[in-house]
Amino acid sequence: MTEQVDVDLARTLYRDMARARRLDQEALALARQGQLGLWLQSWGQEAAQVGSMRALDANDWVFPSYREHAAALTRGITPAELLSQWRGSTHAGWDPATYCFHFYSLVLGTQTLHATGYAMGTKLDGGNQIVVTYFGDGAASQGDVNEAFNWAAARSLPVLFVCQNNQWAISTPTELQFGAPLHQRAAGFGLRSFVVDGNDVLAVHAVTREAAEVVRSGQGPAFVEAVTFRMGGHSTADDPARYRDPADVEAWAARDPLLRLRAVLHSEEAFFSDLDAEIDAFGAEVRAACHGLGECDLDEVFGYTYAEPHPSLAVERAARLASLT
């Protein structure tokens, strides 16, 4: 028997992915125009992010890396909040507590330790809230990530690790990164492990929902490896044509997560017509949000470096103010 597709869910997932794709396109153009200092695209990885995010509860805490724009939009973070850090207008664009979504971490893999520590506190507090952290296959080679696996498993913490295996750690392919699949490595630490086609948003949603329930029910941490592909460069400072075979890119383009879900929703003509207009308006919103961002107030550096006032920092702040007069 063929399982019926939840059409309402499929529409929601497609809309989320389409918004993320348009954000990426606009941000890339803005970066090329000098409006953003840097941008790291989630192009090609929308299904891995949207499908997993929509399987979570609203109060589950999320610790992203630096490419989780689709996940952030799904949680309600605005384009202005997302772009502000990349424009240099602020050090972190949003209040994590508002969205239960931590701000981006640019240090590779460190967010997995943050998530594990937060999950320790969540376990002590009780309740059924879980903690989710996103990272890539390259980050999985970092010591921080493996330490997080071990600590989470040893303490049976309510944390779900979601690895977007996009095949490349900047210019290093997966075959040069590790000798066994990532989900097998996670299982070796004692995590309940899953692997899923990361370009099938419905499959990602179903697998993440099952993995989240394992964690939420007190069975310890879990790991989801979503096998996907980074369609763009590592960042706007990277030229992937120097190290990737165009045939591989073409093959993965045929597995585009939006095209695959659109084929499922092929009869929803009115939905796509309305959505096209909405996405065009969203693109204009993204551009306006970027241009409306102000300059960074460097006084924030002194206000947030230490939790309490610090004598040395006070001297430095006074010196800066003197230099402005």
Results as ranks from 00 to 15, higher is better:
D144Q: 14
V145R: 05
V145F: 08
N146V: 15
E147T: 15
E147R: 11
A148I: 02
F149P: 12
N150H: 15
N150I: 11
N150G: 09
W151K: 11
W151M: 15
W151G: 08
W151P: 03
A152K: 06
A152E: 10
A153I: 08
A153G: 11
A153K: 06
A153P: 12
A154K: 09
A154E: 11
R155D: 13
R155Y: 15
S156L: 12
P158D: 12
P158V: 12
P158S: 13
V159F: 06
V159H: 14
V159M: 06
V159R: 13
L160E: 10
L160I: 13
L160G: 05
L160D: 05
F161V: 05
F161K: 05
F161D: 01
F161L: 10
V162F: 14
V162H: 14
C163H: 02
C163R: 01
C163S: 01
Q164S: 13
Q164R: 14
Q164Y: 01
Q164C: 09
N165C: 03
N166A: 08
N166P: 09
N166I: 03
Q167A: 10
Q167M: 12
W168T: 01
A169H: 11
I170C: 11
I170T: 11
I170M: 14
I170D: 10
S171E: 13
T172K: 13
T172S: 15
T172Q: 15
P173H: 00
P173M: 09
T174W: 04
E175S: 10
E175R: 14
L176K: 13
Q177I: 03
Q177N: 03
Q177F: 02
Q177G: 02
F178D: 11
F178V: 11
F178K: 12
F178C: 12
F178S: 13
F178E: 03
F178R: 15
G179H: 10
G179T: 08
G179W: 01
P181S: 06
L182C: 00
L182N: 02
L182D: 00
Q184V: 01
R185D: 00
R185A: 02
R185H: 02
A186W: 03
A186C: 10
A187V: 05
A187P: 06
A187E: 15
G188T: 07
G188H: 03
G188P: 09
G188V: 08
G188E: 07
G188W: 07
F189N: 02
F189G: 03
F189L: 04
G190D: 08
L191N: 12
R192E: 09
R192K: 14
S193V: 02
S193M: 06
S193K: 00
S193Y: 00
S193D: 07
F194E: 02
F194Y: 15
F194A: 01
F194L: 05
F194S: 02
V195G: 05
D197K: 01
D197E: 10
D197W: 08
G198M: 05
G198L: 08
N199Y: 02
N199F: 03
D200I: 00
L202W: 08
L202G: 07
A203W: 07
A203V: 08
A203Y: 08
A203C: 08
A203L: 10
V204P: 09
V204W: 07
V204S: 06
V204G: 09
H205V: 09
H205M: 10
H205W: 12
A206G: 08
V207D: 02
T208F: 05
T208A: 03
